[in-house]
Nucleic acid binder design. Structure first.
Length: 549
RNA sequence: GGCCCCAUCGUCUAGGCAGGUCUAGGACACCGGGUUUUCAACCCGGCAACAGGGGUUCGAAUCCCCUUGGGGCUACCA
């Protein structure tokens, strides 16, 4: 085994990178890094109907955000390019021709409708549908004639039917498929593009891939792919396969992108007085489209879903990697958490840095059973990583986050940002830091007061106390944290009250909420002038004539 | 329906391949208590699992079979 390890991540560019894809990418990447091998990014854009032009770009950005880099692929280049399958048509054509010439593949003229019918007919059969190979293969001339008539022409691989197909899997051992179990499958579509099952085999060989780590959903494709490999490349050693378990959502079934629209729909139905025109407007869709969505007939695209959810204030479950970014998770957290979904280092370690993961990763420790994506545990992991990550790096992560969610806190310079982080100790996500410190960037007049907080805090003599606090703050010589603390504690003691009775009215007055950084820091950072201004506004708003000033 | 895979606390899992050291360990969640100026964070304690049934064996969470349950695939998608 002197061969250098080569792994690849081969996404089809249909949208954002989601957690499942990210995990596949990560495992392949970890194995390459662990062994000093090569990690290839290959874009499987062979489906013209589904690919979107920006998706490949997006997937690459998401990978970069996670810290997953590739040695060969788009942007990086490499000796085995091009790395977009749509640019490798001539290569596939060559191998298709070879198979055709050797009678290992044959032309088919069935339309999709024909196939549907065949399948329907086979429904009652004991073995289910299997494509019936013709007694003799159509000739090149037949194909040409069909093409000129505008008929559908595809190419099928003649899968060996007389022997069991054995797949060796690093995770599951040997799996045997009975003779005849795998029927002839299409390797070239009628639009001339290769199918996944074909392109993937050709490219894995040409790109000298040694290990394929992929989801369990591909396990049943493997015998066919291996048979194809033998037909194409004879005894050349095929890659080793490791089929990972599937990730299940904690909201029920399989973790899928459909969960977001589903959650939004549920929310829309629960909200009584929704302004549908406005909602459609916000989502950038027509009233008809919204109606179709509500009736379950159509699903708007992701940006629309996101916009409407934001408008309604409905949190959607994070599925795509960018969703986690926007929710304030660190890439370190995602990588760590994803790595532990179906793998573990064999000891009690859980919170691990990149380097540790690379050092400990091993393909033989992949678990066989499906794992559930536990968001509560994810949050806990994020809390740990926020504590653990180097301060400059955390600041950069925060800056990226504030930018993408368009927070006013983004106006802070590095020094201020670091200070904000330090007073938000114990934050679980970057969103916590943003939420807690936004009050510093608000205008006094337009500060929003949380109703519940006001009701809870401004009762009894809270207003009177706040008025007193105001006067004392105004009278302080030096406006320091220590000074503020001494004053507030002194006042509480004098009145025989807990500090909370004194601090809470002040907290709500300056930030509109009961949730904020520690009160001394908050007041100090707001500054005396602004603090007094806000207290005055609060006194006016919540005070009665008798006890305000 | 057919084929394939899987099965330890609520969840992620260690242990299983080399059966005894497992009265089954850790983490998250949860519950109770502590700390406390809010939210968090933090500290202490607690609850909680080998799916069921047959074998093999002196002995099974660990090996074999069946049942049940879960998942995947069954496309001119990847």
């Amino acid at each position: 085994m002197s061969d250098k390890v080569v792994t690849r991540f081969a996404p089809s560019p249909t949208g954002y990178l989601h957690v499942g894809g990210a995990r596949t990418a990560l495992f392949n990447w970890l194995w390459a890094r662990r062994t000093g091998g090569t990690f290839i990014l290959r874009i499987e854009d062979t489906d013209q109907k589904r690919n979107t032009p920006t998706a490949a770009r997006q997937v690459m950005d998401d990978l970069k955000w996670l810290g997953i880099d590739w040695d060969e692929g788009p942007e990086a280049g490499g000796p085995n390019g091009p790395y977009l399958q749509s640019q490798r048509r001539d290569i596939y054509d060559k191998y298709i021709k070879q198979l055709l010439d050797e009678k290992k593949a044959y032309y088919c003229f069935d339309t999709p409708e024909d196939l549907d019918e065949l399948r329907k007919k086979a429904e009652g059969d004991k073995g289910g549908f299997a494509y019936q190979r013709p007694g003799s293969f159509p000739s090149e001339a037949d194909a040409e004639a069909a093409r000129s008539r505008g008929e559908s022409v595809t190419v099928r691989f003649a899968v060996p039917q007389d022997e069991p197909l054995v797949v060796k899997d690093l995770v599951r051992g040997e799996i045997t498929f009975a003779p005849g179990e795998i029927s002839d499958f299409i390797i070239q579509k009628s639009d001339g593009f290769p199918t996944y099952n074909f392109a993937c085999v050709v490219d894995d060989c040409l790109m000298k891939v040694t290990h394929v780590v992929r989801g369990q959903e591909h396990l049943n494709n493997t015998p066919g792919q291996q048979a194809l490999w033998r037909a194409l490349f004879g005894d050349a050693e095929p890659p080793r396969y490791a089929h990972m378990s599937v990730t299940i959502s904690d909201s029920g079934g399989k973790l899928s992108k459909r969960e977001r629209p589903k959650a939004l729909l549920t929310a829309i139905k629960q909200i009584q007085d929704t302004d549908f025109d406005k909602l459609a407007n916000v989502g950038g869709i027509s009233a008809e489209q919204l109606n179709a969505f509500i009736k379950g007939k159509a699903v708007p695209d992701m940006p629309s879903i996101d916009a409407m959810a934001e408008f309604l204030g409905v949190p959607l479950p994070e599925i795509n990697i960018v969703d986690f970014f926007k929710s304030g998770y660190l890439p370190e957290t995602m990588v760590n958490f994803l790595a532990l979904l179906g793998w573990n280092p064999g000891d009690d370690r859980e919170i691990m840095r990149f380097e540790e993961l690379i050092e400990a990763f091993d393909l033989t420790r992949l678990s066989k059973s499906n794992s559930l994506f536990d968001r509560k545990k994810l949050i806990s992991f994020n809390t740990e990583h926020i504590k653990m990550v180097e301060s400059g790096r955390l600041r950069e992560h925060l800056r990226d986050y504030l930018k993408i969610v368009d927070s006013p806190v983004a106006a802070a310079d590095d020094e201020l940002l670091s200070k904000l982080i330090s007073i938000c100790e114990g934050a679980r996500t970057l969103a916590d830091i943003d939420r807690k410190t936004r009050f510093l960037f608000a205008e006094a007049d337009s500060l929003k007061y949380d109703e519940k907080a006001v009701r809870k805090v401004f009762k009894g003599d809270a207003v009177a106390i706040l008025a007193e606090v105001r006067d004392k703050l105004a009278a302080m010589d030096e406006f320091t944290e220590q000074g503020i603390e001494d004053m507030l504690r002194g006042l509480a003691e004098e009145k025989q009250l807990g500090l909370g009775k004194v601090a809470q009215p002040l907290r709500v007055a300056i930030c509109g909420n009961t949730i904020s950084p520690p009160i001394f820091d908050s007041v100090r950072m707001l500054g005396r002038e602004e603090t007094l201004k806000r207290i005055d506004i609060a006194l006016r708003k919540f005070g009665t004539d008798g006890n305000a000033e």
